[in-house]
């Protein structure tokens, strides 16, 4: 069995989510990587665990139509085709599946065997074990569930491919990076959230923002903090607000009401800082720290 992974480049490097997908793919056998666009060939070539990099330099912007068409021509050589559960992976792989009349499997969090996978359904409220009867399995991978392969140490061969003929029905116009320096809550790798324990809006900003700046984190809030006017509605994390699953979630001065937990419990690592050792947030935290926020948070800013 051989797997093909569609990888993504960001600032000249292979995205961590793609390296997680490669780690997942290595469970099936040898791994080839497909790289679209005119950058990143060097970074892709050194990825650990990759046999061959298929590079299509002329296919810029990773439009789904030509990308899926190209993948369809490569598919017969592979048992599994994977990508990260990113906006790009989820745009392209289901289209490929449509071309091949295969049922794709999104957001895989665990691989049971070559055709059996576990994936969350109902916004993570349940985990479904699914079995595919398709000849080629098409998967998108939840990066937080697979440790990424190393960026270096590999020595893949490079093969340059031509882009398929394009009918021009889909044309790239522009890409706009988010204006804010801070990532958006739902896609941030790190989230720091504050609750009522921060006492007022100025503390909320003054204590959380320096940490968020240092970690490149998005800022979230508990419902109580939003209701008390510390933070705007769109910052609310929880069942009625945004559901986030970052690599690192730092909860400060919030007790961890179940509505809040529903919005962040899928985070990979949870840190809780609270004065009340009985606060329910400690029951889900990987690292807890009991104490006064007004001392701990400035100290944390310094230590980072």
């Amino acid at each position: 069995m051989t797997a093909l992974v569609l990888i993504e480049i960001e600032n000249g490097k292979v995205r961590q989510a793609s390296r997680s997908a490669i780690a997942a793919a290595s469970r099936f056998g040898e791994v080839d990587a497909l790289l679209l666009g005119n950058t990143g060939a060097e970074a892709a070539g050194t990825l650990a665990g990759v046999r061959k990099v298929l590079h299509v330099p002329t296919l810029t912007h990773a439009l789904a139509e030509p990308a899926a068409a190209l993948l369809a021509t490569l598919a017969p050589s592979y048992s599994h085709i994977l990508a990260a559960s990113s906006s790009s992976g989820k745009n392209i792989l289901p289209r490929l599946a449509g071309l091949l009349d295969v049922q794709p499997i999104s957001d895989v969090v665990k691989i049971e065997d070559e055709s059996t996978f576990i994936r969350p359904i109902y916004a993570g409220n349940a985990l479904a074990t699914v079995q595919s009867s398709d000849n080629v399995k098409i998967l998108t991978i939840r990066s937080s569930s697979f440790d990424p392969v190393a960026e270096s140490g590999g020595n893949a061969s490079l093969e340059v491919l031509d882009a398929p003929a394009d009918d021009g029905k889909s044309r790239f116009v522009k890409l706009e990076q988010s204006q804010s320096d801070r990532p958006e809550l739902e896609v941030a790798r790190v989230v720091i959230s504050g609750g009522k324990g921060l006492k007022d809006a100025s503390n909320f900003h003054n204590l959380l923002e320096p940490i968020a700046d240092k970690l490149g984190a998005a800022i979230g809030a508990s419902r109580a903090a939003v209701d008390s006017g510390f933070a705007p509605n769109e910052m609310q994390v929880g069942q009625t607000g945004k559901v986030v699953a970052p690599e690192l979630y730092i909860a400060t001065g919030l007790s961890g009401a179940i509505q809040h937990l529903a919005g962040m419990k899928d985070s990979r690592v949870i840190v809780a800082i609270n004065i009340d050792p009985e606060a329910p947030i400690f029951k889900v935290a990987d690292y807890g720290m009991v104490g006064d926020l007004f001392e701990i948070l400035p100290a944390l800013t310094k230590a980072l």
Binding site: N233, Q239, T240, A257, I258, Q259, A262
Partner: peptide, 15 residues
């Protein structure tokens, strides 16, 4: 009470 009310599946637009 907080975890109890969670089981009531309340729909209520906050705004």
């Amino acid at each position: 009470r907080a975890e109890s009310v969670f089981l009531s599946n309340i729909s209520h637009d906050d705004d």
